[in-house]
Design a binder for these strands. Structure first.
Lengths: 124, 124
DNA sequence: AATTTATTGCAACAACATTGCAATATTATA
DNA sequence: TATAATATTGCAATGTTGTTGCAATAAATT
């Protein structure tokens, strides 16, 4: 399953990069220059996640947000940072703080999803 | 809006209590003794959340899980503990660990949703 | 027993995300 | 450059989760 370069992929990644924050499918569809099908956007985003380009965060509004990975490949501590979801401007941003946790022996953690919801600096 | 005692409420709460872990609507509907409408279960659960009896956790499978509150009223640090969602047995449990985070000044946190996903002790 | 109104069931709806399939476009190969 | 292989896309349909309007029911109060 070798990846191919397409205008769609470039356009989607460009929008997220320019936004400088995590985006949901509908926000991407709204901002993107060319017309891309909804299902295709999801497929592109999920492929980026598989490739370690993006990571997926599930916010309390029940939507998936996709954020650029920053050094996610090097260590497997990858997306284990907090995220902040603003209920006013609806944006989700990655916080620099790493998530520290400890779990009882015998538990295998495969993924971490930590979202703080509230009002961000700009909106308060 | 004074609450009333109904068989439905008792049955739902009983199932969650006996399970000893957080449950989703469909799991409750499956386990509950009497026949309760799907919408009603959601309304009962949300009412319990409003009353501080349960708290709601959004897992990575996109579903809401409802867990018993343990001393949630006393402090507002209430549901700020980690949760563990097992991908094998599909259960979600509250971990004793509190979530420690720090955010930049100017941010107002209203809710915390932290879920670790993986394989629990029993299933591994 | 009668009144008030919280609760419930039903059906419809809404939002988000995924999937099958045929058509298209990219990449590799000849 | 032409051709073949197959990754990608659009479209429509489907699935899942959760909510809402409304009439009927039932709990609590008088």
């Amino acid at each position: 399953m070798k990846r191919r370069n397409t205008p769609t992929k470039e356009a989607v990644l460009s929008v997220i990069t320019k936004a400088g924050q995590a985006m949901s499918q509908d926000a991407i569809e709204e901002k993107v220059a060319i017309d891309i099908n909804r299902a295709t956007i999801y497929r592109v985003l999920n492929r980026f996640c598989d490739d370690g380009v993006l990571h997926k965060v599930l916010a309390e509004d029940g939507k998936q947000y996709f954020a650029l990975c920053d050094g996610c490949d090097e260590t497997h501590q990858e997306h284990q940072h907090f995220h902040f979801k603003c209920t006013v401007c609806e944006t989700l941003e990655c916080l620099p703080n790493a998530v520290n946790y400890s779990i009882p022996a015998g538990y295998q953690v495969e993924n971490v999803n930590c979202v703080l919801t509230g009002v961000c600096k700009k909106c308060s």
